[in-house]
Design a protein around this nucleic acid. Structure first.
Length: 560
RNA sequence: CGGGGCGUAGCGCAGCCUGGUAGCGCACACGGUUCGGGACCGUGGAGUCGAAGGUUCAAAUCCUUUCGCCCCGACCA
């Protein structure tokens, strides 16, 4: 491709609306433009990257026997009503009516459609298993689109769905996907982790996410270097560091106007890990007192699984239910349900005295109060792994893919049944698996850039090589550049040639910004000796090679 | 949905407090010089000051409403 013929519009200045590095660089290097919040146009360079990612997706999905289909983005409401999600899902679903007044929606995912298809087409165990996939647009009315292409309202997704006769079959399809995903993300040159995740509202037994570590990521993941435990913080288990067991005797201390752990901790000169935080919650059924250690945070999602939906109690409710002013609650002598974090089983603590402006020191769990024990704290950096006791790390990460075991959540209501060997009618066991190509591209930029611009992994760069004829007024330069260009094309190497009548500096700057991994610099002086320069975008190292050896050298470089 | 910020030329911004001819840099067009790390000089084109209403002799500037975009949080099947 000739640069002068391709629409590439680079920006010298950082657009005001961009914050994330990938967003800034995609705009500056001319990969995307924003139409409105969470809606992006992919320019020629951007589309090339997406297409290279899609090619990898196709290869690996086809390799596990998945078959490509394509489903509509516009759905009739009926299928969503069948599974109940028409009502379950709130404002995040784009809804509209057709001219006949029928309710329609824009597809945010395709479990319903797959189950509908399977219900119509699959009748016998002989037709199973199946894996169907598409690379197609999804629409979600996100509450807050952000970070450029990382969270948008319309986005491309590779979504696949497995249909199996039983749990064992599902396990196999799940495993196939996990392996394919490992290949896909490493082929794309990403640093990533496969972590345990919360199946949540998707339903089903097991789910994993593929996470590309990056400060721009919205998720936090807990990682153990000891045993490889990796989990999304939304469900990660951990053991907080142990505290010394103090030989305090139970005593009441006057703590005027000191309500928060920090205030009391500063006042008594006792560090927060010796405190018990008591939080009153109102669940659907009854009030619950939740206890976590002073240096820990209560994990709402974990607690949700134990006591169901709940909310924080208001100040008046605290007074009414516990008979204490908020800020001075202690775990002792209450008749309500108490759920405490397991790490509080051992130790001697300080907590509210259930009396305004007083705290109690020397509280012993088991003796002074009892509770149901669960892991209900948020795992944090420095906590220990529950499996091997190694300190864990917390990293921010971008969710680039996920795999879910669904079971019969969708097949049952959609009546996707098959007849087994004995003529028995059984529901198809489903799994669903997603990858966001745009997130792969953005993650690759987040993980590979420098002050000058993008450094694409070779596999997903818009071109393999960029040729920079520095002085296009020199006929020899142009002749050699065009000759090499043709040779590359003949070899099936994707090449961009910067044939613009621009000064050398401009070409260097744009080449660095755009981030094609290998540059071939053609300058007059080297040419006189029959040489051109090969430059590595990442290391910035250059090597002079003979013109006739260039293609061979580049082929070697592309391979490794 | 809660909190904060910003809308002035294609892009980045100043001007607004204290009302009085709409500016700077980059980009763009033309001419000349330059030419291996975003050149220089000269000339030029380009703006309903996000929108609506109000106050005023006079509004980019003050007031009200509204729309859009970004950031933090909540949410995210």
């Amino acid at each position: 491709m000739h640069y002068s013929k391709m629409f590439i519009s680079t920006l010298k200045e950082v657009p005001a609306e961009a914050e994330a590095i990938s967003h800034i660089l995609m705009l500056r290097a001319g990969y995307v433009r924003q139409l409105a919040a969470g809606l992006y146009i992919y320019l020629p360079l951007g589309l090339r990257v997406i297409e290279r990612i899609n090619k990898i997706l196709h290869e690996e999905m086809n390799a596990i026997g998945a078959q490509e289909i394509t489903m509509p983005a516009l759905h009739p409401s009926e299928v969503w009503q069948e599974t109940g999600r028409w009502d379950e899902i709130g404002e995040e679903m784009f809804r509209l009516k057709d001219r006949g007044g029928r309710d329609m929606c824009l597809g945010m995912t395709h479990e319903e459609i797959i189950a509908w298809l399977a219900a119509k087409e699959i009748h016998s165990y002989r037709e199973l298993p199946q894996i169907w996939y598409q690379i197609q647009v999804k629409l979600r009315d996100e509450a807050r689109p952000k970070s450029g292409v990382l969270r948008t309202r319309e986005f491309l997704m590779k979504d696949s769905y497995s249909l199996d006769v039983d749990e064992e079959g599902l396990e196999n399809s799940y495993q196939l996907h996990a392996e394919a995903y490992h290949k896909i993300f490493s082929n794309c040159g990403l640093k990533y982790y496969m972590v345990e995740s919360d199946p949540g509202m998707m339903g089903g037994a097991k789910a994993h996410e593929f996470m590309a570590p990056s400060p721009a990521g919205e998720d936090e993941i807990a990682l153990c270097d000891g045993c490889g435990y990796a989990a999304n913080v939304e469900l990660a288990l951990s053991i907080p560091k142990k505290v010394e067991i103090q030989n305090w005797v139970l005593e009441e201390i006057h703590t005027p106007e000191k309500r928060t752990v920090k205030e009391v901790s500063d006042f008594l000169k006792i560090t927060p890990e010796y405190f018990i935080k008591s939080i009153l919650l109102i669940s659907d059924k009854c009030p619950v007192l939740a206890l976590v250690r002073g240096d820990q945070e209560l994990h709402e999602k974990k607690l949700n699984k134990i006591i169901g939906n709940h909310r924080q109690a208001h100040k008046e409710e605290v007074k009414e239910i516990l008979g204490v002013e908020a800020g001075f609650i202690g775990p002792m002598n209450h008749k309500i349900r108490i759920v405490a974090d397991s790490c509080l089983k051992e130790g001697v603590y300080v907590s509210g005295a259930n009396k305004s402006h007083y705290h109690k020191k020397g509280i012993k769990p088991g003796k002074d109060f009892t509770a149901e024990w669960f892991d209900i704290h948020i795992a944090k950096e420095g906590d220990f792994c529950t499996k091997c006791n190694t300190p864990i790390r917390i990293e921010n990460a971008i969710e680039v893919g996920n795999i879910f075991m669904l079971g019969t959540k969708y097949s049952h209501p959609m009546k996707a049944f098959y007849l087994d060997k004995n003529g028995q009618e059984k529901p198809i066991i489903m799994g669903s698996y997603g990858i966001g190509p745009a997130r792969i591209a953005a993650s690759a930029i987040e993980q590979n850039n420098d002050k000058d611009g993008i450094i694409w992994p070779k596999s997903i760069a818009p071109f393999d090589v960029e040729i920079l004829p520095l002085n296009t007024k020199d006929s020899k330069t142009v002749e050699v550049a065009e000759k090499l260009y043709k040779l590359f094309i003949d070899e099936g190497i994707e090449v961009l040639i910067d044939d613009r009548e621009e000064r050398a500096g401009v070409k260097f700057k744009d080449a660095d910004l755009i981030g094609i991994p290998i540059h071939i610099i053609i300058g007059e002086k080297n040419l006189k000796e029959g040489l051109v320069e090969i430059k590595d975008r990442r290391t910035k190292e250059t090597a002079k090679v003979k013109i006739e050896d260039t293609v061979k050298k580049i082929k070697e470089k592309i391979k490794d």
